[in-house]
Every structure is written in C-alpha cells, then in structure tokens.
Write a protein that binds this DNA or RNA. Sequence first.
DNA 1: ACCTGAACACCGTTCAAGT
DNA 2: ACCTGAACACCGTTCAAGT
Lengths: 219, 219
Amino acid sequence: MAAAIRVADAEGLAAVSVRRLAIELDARPMSIYSYARIESKEELFDLMVDEVCAEMLVPDLPDPWRPALRAVATRTRAALLAHPWWVELIGRNVLLGPHGTRYQEQLLAAVRTLDADPKTKQAVGVTVETYVVGQITFALDEQGSAETEHRSTTRSRQAVSQYQRDLIATGEFPQLSSVGPPEPSSAADRDRYFNLGLDWLLAGIGASLEPDAGPHRAD
Amino acid sequence: MAAAIRVADAEGLAAVSVRRLAIELDARPMSIYSYARIESKEELFDLMVDEVCAEMLVPDLPDPWRPALRAVATRTRAALLAHPWWVELIGRNVLLGPHGTRYQEQLLAAVRTLDADPKTKQAVGVTVETYVVGQITFALDEQGSAETEHRSTTRSRQAVSQYQRDLIATGEFPQLSSVGPPEPSSAADRDRYFNLGLDWLLAGIGASLEPDAGPHRAD
DNA sequence: ACCTGAACACCGTTCAAGT
DNA sequence: ACCTGAACACCGTTCAAGT
C-alpha cells in the first residue's frame, strides 16, 4: 500500500504494477495479493484512493461553514497535489472505504451550520469538493509536465506550446491571441486563482442561502 | 478515431487497445499507427480528447457572460456525460489540439463582456470549466456503476452501500447517519444539483466582479 | 510511404503444487 | 492460510522485410 503510493507519486500510476510492487517489497508477484489482502488490482487502487482520503481530513474543523469549507478545500487540494493520480483513479469508479466515508462525514459536518435542508447542504459540500477536484485536474496539466516528465520526449511541452502559437497565428482565435496562450503559471499564482475561485463559490453559496446577512461578510 | 471513441464509450477506456482497434477496423495491429497517423497510443488518446472538445463548442454563443457561461457549461457537461473516459484522460496530462484550442477560445469569448482584467476573466472561465469537470467526476460515480457495469461482479454497488451502511451503524458518523448514505440520485436530480451549484458559482462571480448590479439579476 | 508478421518485454490473473 | 513458479491470454512497441 505505502509502497504502491510511493511508486505512484514518484513515477505515475502506470508504474504501479503487481510485478513492480513485488520487486519493491522483495516478494514474488503473486504474494502481493495475499500480502495486501487484495483480490484484484482494482482493489489495490481502491485502497490507494482511500488512503489519500485520510490525508484530506482536517484535524480541527471550525464550526462556521465558510472557514470549515475553506479548510476542507485547502486540505483536499494539498492531498491531491501530493498524489496527482488520485484524480485519475476517481475518474474510474472507485469504491470508498472507511476514510472516504469519514471524508464524506467531514463534508457534511462542514456545512452543518448552514440553514438549509439536508439535500441542499449536501449539494453545497459536493459542489465545493467538485470545484477542488476540477481545479486540480487543470493545475496538473500545467505543473505535471513541467516537474515530473512522464511524457515522451518527442512531444515536449515546448513543442506543444509552439504548436498552439502557430494555431493562434492563423488569426482564428481572436480572444486567445489577445491574451496569449495560457502561460505556465507559478505555484503562487495557482494558489491565488484557486482561492479566488473558491471565494466566488462561497460568496455565491452565501448569497443564495444566507441572503439576509451582508454580502461581503468576512470569514 | 471514431472507432476508438465508439469502443471507449461502449466498453470503457481500458478496452481501447491497438489490437482491439485493428480488429474493429479489419486491419492488422501495426497498421493502426500509420492509419491514424499516430506514433504512440498516447497520441491516440490526445486525438480522442480533442475530438470530444469539438462537441463542447456552442454553435451560437450569447454575448452576455452569464448565459454564455451557462451554455458552455451545459454543453461541456453533455459531452462529458456521453464520453465519461474524457475525465480520466484529462487527469493524465494531455496535449490539446485544434478543437481543444477552440474550446479555450470559446471560454474566453464567453467571459468577454465581463469588466475585469484578462487574467481574472481567464480565471472565471477556468473556474467554470473546473466546476463542470469536477461535477462530472462525481456524477459518474453514481451513474457509472449503475448503468454500464465495468466493475467486477464480486464487489457490486449493492455490496458497497451495504458496507457503508455498516460503517454508519457504528455511530462514528453522526452527520451521515442523519442524512443516510448518498442514495443513487435520478438523472433529473443530478441536472438540478448541477444547475444549482452553477447558479451559486455564477452568483458569486457576479457579486465579486459586478458589485454594482443587483445581486439576483436574471440571466 | 505504407503495410506486414514475428518477436520482445511487459501486463494481470489462473492454477496446481507446495508449506 | 499463505506463498510459489509456471503458464495463459493479453498488452504496446521494435524491427526487418515486404509492396
């Protein structure tokens, strides 16, 4: 498990194979199944997903929903940046284990103080989680190829942005040519825009569910 | 290409293999590479992603940013529900082709009328896209195993929700036990909650970038 | 330039045999 | 109950040979 996560973090999900883990653990391929109490590789992935869910739990969840959701979002994001393959796995249909369930519980606890019906509160939680996962997906596109180069050298990031520059030069893309192609942003920038979008989302939720309170209440 | 997408739609991404496509196209495995003008399977995936991007283009994009973003979000969602594997592929780092670039252009065009600096406008577009992708990720978790059963029969959805019910029965999950585990929602419900979250997001964006306008302006 | 078939180095998993 | 090794049915891709 820990070995599988280590390999996935370092070399990508594709590097995680039964035979590879066997080498990592000084065992024979087939003993992995009994060692990890796994019946298929799919179950190994389930375990990996659940393990990362544990990292998404915030130790002391604040009571008010805004800081609580912010804390959950931040911690979730940190965990996903550390384990980028989680997003890919969650794209398959994964079964959630104990930690995943605890994470769901945490999401509901975060919106507990909201004055709305349970279904709506659940929707708030899911929407925020959703935002984080989506944000990560695109953050990885920018960071991924820059830092850990899993991609074949034949089509480097550089070649692609050249390709895109050529496309833009055709004049078919007025909006893009005025902004330029999305340049690789710094980690600080990505943090900033993540929080900006999160602000929008929380503001929208607040405005919709707490219309009485002032629109720009501080957290 | 079309064959690859057909297979992925019908049987999941895992079923897309060079040898399988060869059978599908009545060809020999190695001719796929010359036929699709591909140098690796990774490039095939790039093409598939780009093809779906074409489906995300809105024919007549409205001028005002709210309906424009709503149109983009809706169409993107429809395309992703039809091609669930897109989310998984985008989790790897994919290179965007002409249609992907056109999609980026569309996103910028949608926020064109917003009164903000270019970076912020771009952030708005990315945030909305991000929300859609994230939403799909979890929608698939619910729909996926129910409709197209790619998962081994040994761990059916039913067994899992039983497992989760047991967890909840331990009393460790007060929030979850009051709501019950997330029951499989209907397609209509999913549409509703997707739009609800989108409303929140657009409201938040509006409140932040157009504070002068009334808070509940209709689209 | 495009297609072919055989081969290589990998997969996950089955199975029969061991302890 | 756990581990083993050989085998099976698959992968993506290389390569040398054909047209």
